[in-house]
Design a protein around this nucleic acid. Sequence first.
DNA 1: AGTCGAAACGGACCGTGGTCCGCTTTGTAT
DNA 2: ATACAAAGCGGACCACGGTCCGTTTCGACT
Lengths: 201, 201
Amino acid sequence: MSEPRVLPLLTGPPPERRDAARNREALLAAARELVERDGVHAVTMDAVAAAAGVGKGTVFRRFGSKEGLMAAVLDHSETEWQRQLMFGPPPLGPGAPPWDRLVAFGWSRLETTLLHADLIRAAGAEGSRSSAAYSLVAMHVRYLLSELEVTGDLPILATALLAPMEIPILDQQIELDGFPLDRVYAGWVDLARRIVGPNAG
Amino acid sequence: MSEPRVLPLLTGPPPERRDAARNREALLAAARELVERDGVHAVTMDAVAAAAGVGKGTVFRRFGSKEGLMAAVLDHSETEWQRQLMFGPPPLGPGAPPWDRLVAFGWSRLETTLLHADLIRAAGAEGSRSSAAYSLVAMHVRYLLSELEVTGDLPILATALLAPMEIPILDQQIELDGFPLDRVYAGWVDLARRIVGPNAG
DNA sequence: AGTCGAAACGGACCGTGGTCCGCTTTGTAT
DNA sequence: ATACAAAGCGGACCACGGTCCGTTTCGACT
C-alpha cells in the first residue's frame, strides 16, 4: 500500500527515463559543439553519436532525423532571443508603442534569421514549421497588429508579414538578386506600413 | 579552306553534342514518366538512368543533382501555365484591367503551386530560385503593380506579394494551421489590396 | 534484495544521392 | 579516309541518413 510519488493530477504524460534524459543532454551538447566547430553541413549523425558516446540508433530515437536534431539545436539557440522579445528592454521588449515594437521586431528578426541561416535550412520543415519558435513569433506579430487596431484576418496578415523574412525568400533577394540588407529591411517596413494603415507611426 | 557552319555572330556559347542532347531528352522523358507514375519521392536516380538507358554518371553530368533534375521536370510542367499567363485569354492573360489580372493571377498561381507541390519541394532551391520560372512570375507581378501605379520599391513589393504563395508558407497555413484554401486566397487578395492602395478594384 | 515488464540502447545493415576515372563517341582538321 | 583532342559515357565505389532487432538498463512493486 504505497502512495503515488506525486499527486495524480500533476502527473504529466509519461516522464522520461534518467538515462534517456542524460543521453538527450549529451547529444544536444555534442551536436551544438560540432555544429559550431565544423559548420552544419559537415556534421554527420555518426559523428554526433560518437561524440556523445552513444549509439547511432539513440540519436534517431531521440530526435527522429537530422532535421529534428538541427531543429533542437536551433531552438536552443533562439531561446535567448525569445527572452529579449518577451522580457527585454524596449523597443523590442514590452514598454514601447506597438508600431515601434513592430519595427524593432522586424530588424531583430532579420538579423537573427540570417545569423542562424544554415541551421534553419538544415532544420527544414521541423525548424520553421511547428516548434515553439514559430508559434511564438506568429503570436507576437498578431498581438502587435491587434494593438495597432488592424482589422481583418489577423492570422493571415501576420503570416504575410512574416513570409518575406523566411530563409528561402531572403536567399532569393540577398544572394540572387543582390539586394543590400538595408533595402530589404526598408521594403519590409514599407510593407508593414501598408498593412497596418493609418495607425502606423 | 572551309566555311564555318553558321555565321559566327549567331554562334552561342559552345553547342551540345548530338549524343548529349539525345540523352538529355531521354532522361527528361524518363523522369517525367516515372514521377507521374510513382510520385516524386519514390523515384531514384538509378531508376531514371536505367529507364533512359544510360549510366548514372550521365544523369548527374546533365542535371547536377536530383534537385536539378526535378527542377527541369518542373520547368517543363509549368510551361503551359506560363503560356496562359502571357498569351492566354483574360483575365489571366492580357486584355483585362490590371487589378483583375492580378487577382486572377493570385488564384491561378495558388492552384498551380499546390498542384506541383511535391515537385517544387523536391526541386528545392533550384526550383523556386533562379530558373526562368521564378523570374517570369516576379516580372509579371512587377509589371502589374506598375500598371496599377503603385509607388515604392516594386521589386521588393512584388516579392512581398509572392512570398505567401511559396510552398513553405502554404504548408504552414494549410497543413499545419488547417486554414481552408479560400481563406488563404481571400487573405492574399486583402494583402494585395493593402499593397496596391486606392487603385485596387 | 529480488522480480519483471517496459523503455532504451547500439551497431550491423540497407538504400540512395553523388563522385571518379578509364574507356568510347563525336566532330573537326588535314 | 585518317588522326586526334575534347566531350561524353557508365558503372564500380563511397558516404551518410535512416532502420531493425537482439541485448541491456531502469525503476516500480513486493
